[in-house]
Design a protein around this nucleic acid. Structure first.
Lengths: 208, 208
DNA sequence: ATAACCTTCAAGCAATTCCTTGATTCCTTG
DNA sequence: CAAGGAATCAAGGAATTGCTTGAAGGTTAT
């Protein structure tokens, strides 16, 4: 079973299959369509053949590859579906933050300092872990974007959250806020990032 | 898209996923179920997580992995379907040839010689290696029965294969043909073995 | 036959993947 | 806080994979 999955697990082979699903094609044609050398295409095709995903027949000078027997097309379709689903979620989050940027009022650095002194704010750093480790705003929690959705529950829900990223123009900040709000967390983007914070003369934490 | 397929493209990861589909499980449990080291399981799980196929949450001391969002289960199901389909065909082929052995027409020695002259045949000797070394039909390949299934792929699949063993009554010849056909190789048994070949006045090879 | 063409094979190198080991992090519990 | 369990990280060597190059199969066409 993994044999089939492995056969589908290479971009080139997947691309070849996508073309073969549509119609029988020769090796040269496929190589051209997928922008690879003929020899390379031939080798990938033979891997697909070994896995039973395609079959070959000769027609004159050419060897035509077509889809193998069985519900392979369904597998490819299911894969498409799944990937489309994931892409949709990303697109939607981005579109949201693009369409209604006005609804997302950012918090200025001074306002943030005030709120921090009141202890009424959770500061979330959404950059990758390695950047966070180098330096980050004091007391910030590091939750990279990919983990944000599932770790949103870590943030107590009656606290205001302020998210920041690399800088004031970083789209990811807004995206993060969209995600947090989708999880029911009251969140706002910081008007700036680490550089602005430093420029304002405040302290930074390092490590951890 | 290939990213997801690649994540599914390793036997261990697929095995992990099969268990995760059923229920949330801890790393240790999964490692035990799939018979791999904890560290190794952990690494594969993280690959799956990176691809978005699974999500992790902590529960007490353990970290529980569960299926990611979206119609991933459909992909796995489609894969199952497809593989089941192929397995069916193999089983069916075996059953067919067992139930109706009379349909397995053997190739006469004279017919074999004709075909060999045309170069349109691969001759497989399924006896143990030591017997093969003593003497065998010219040009024959030696693949003992136990290795036949896994080495079937060595035989180019658009060539006719003729298999032979010790003699015309040797059951192993038919068994070999069944195995080969199950692998999609067009195979037929020889009506006889080394003694009959010699008796017909043809040459034998020795050694190698 | 010979030539021309499409495809496959074979070999070698670079890059990646896989698994193991031992240390380390992270969290809960006493 | 300390102890302990669960999971992850990090690094290394073995194995596999992927791509390129040049040569070799086979098939039509001249």
């Amino acid at each position: 079973m993994a044999e089939v999955a492995r056969a589908l697990g290479h971009p080139h082979r997947l691309a070849l299959l996508e073309h073969i699903v549509r119609a029988e094609r020769s090796v040269e044609r496929l190589a051209d369509l997928t922008d690879m050398s003929v020899a390379n295409a031939s080798q990938h095709l033979q891997q697909l053949k070994r896995a039973g995903c395609v079959q070959a027949r000769r027609d004159g000078k050419n060897i035509l590859y077509s889809l193998g027997q069985g519900p392979l097309a369904a597998v490819v379709a299911a894969l498409h579906d799944y990937v489309a689903f994931k892409q949709d979620r990303i697109d939607q989050a981005i579109a949201d933050s693009r369409q209604r940027p006005q609804e997302m009022e950012s918090v200025s650095i001074d306002a943030l300092v005030d709120r921090m002194n009141e202890g009424a704010v959770i500061l979330v750093d959404v950059r990758p872990g390695d950047e966070f480790r180098k330096s980050h705003l004091p007391g910030a929690v590091n939750i990279p974007i990919p983990q944000l959705e599932e770790r949103a529950k870590e943030l107590s829900d009656n606290a205001h959250v302020v998210a920041y990223c690399k800088g004031p123009y970083c789209v990811l900040t807004r995206e993060a806020v969209v995600i947090l709000r989708a999880q029911g967390v009251e969140a706002a983007p910081l008007a700036g990032g680490v550089p602005e914070w430093r420029a304002a003369g405040y302290r930074l934490d390092e490590g951890v």
